[in-house]
Amino acid sequence: MKWRVIRLETRSAYSNMAIDNALIEGQKSGASEPTIRFYKWLPSAVSIGCFQSMNDEVDIERCNSLGVSYVRRITGGGAVYHDNKGEITYSVIAPEGLFPKGIIESYKVICGWVIDGLENLNIKAEFAPINDIIVNGKKISGNAQTRRDGAILQHGTILYDTDIRTMFSVLRVSAEKISDKMIRSAEERVTRVKDHANATQEELYDALLKGFTNGKDYEFGAYTEKELKRAEELEESVYSKNAWNFSR
């Protein structure tokens, strides 16, 4: 079984989520190969979990003033700030049968690839169920998974040098709480690659690439015309629409 790897690319929040959606649909029809993709978000964006309220989780005014985008994911989980300059996101989209049936076990497998990647930078990370990866007890990566029609989609973020102050100003925290105390408190819970390794972001990407592809038969590839067409449809009809993003 051969994996297709999509090299690190940059897209809008709507496009990134539409691509993931199109690829999980493509698994059912057989139109899409099992895929690992790495990507960034431009502009920086907040993605919220499928069951969260956009207005409760995200300071929309603040996002608009900073030019930060916002989108609802098809996966559950919490709100994530995707700093264009400070974070790398991955998605794994493949037939469900390639992974353990148990949810936690399957999180552990894919999170293990992230952990292997970080190990390449001499960062000792560990899986913290349900869906986090931690270093010295602090979260460095959040992950979210769904399954539909016999396929699995897991995507996750790896913090490189995310701007914590901006993160906690766009995620719903009242302005008066953006004090030094708040930032210190956030830093106690969150950590970044840059806090542990003197690596460039390109080196982080290379390390992750190795972690994800180690021992696998894979080749670098591109999306098919059909996948891109479906993603464009989903971007236009779902992910760019308030009806979806503000549905809760």
Partner: peptide
């Protein structure tokens, strides 16, 4: 009624 949160459920339409 709205049930909200950062939990996982699939198919998501079940909520």
């Amino acid at each position: 009624i709205q049930i909200l949160g950062d939990f996982f459920m699939y198919p998501e339409s079940a909520l």
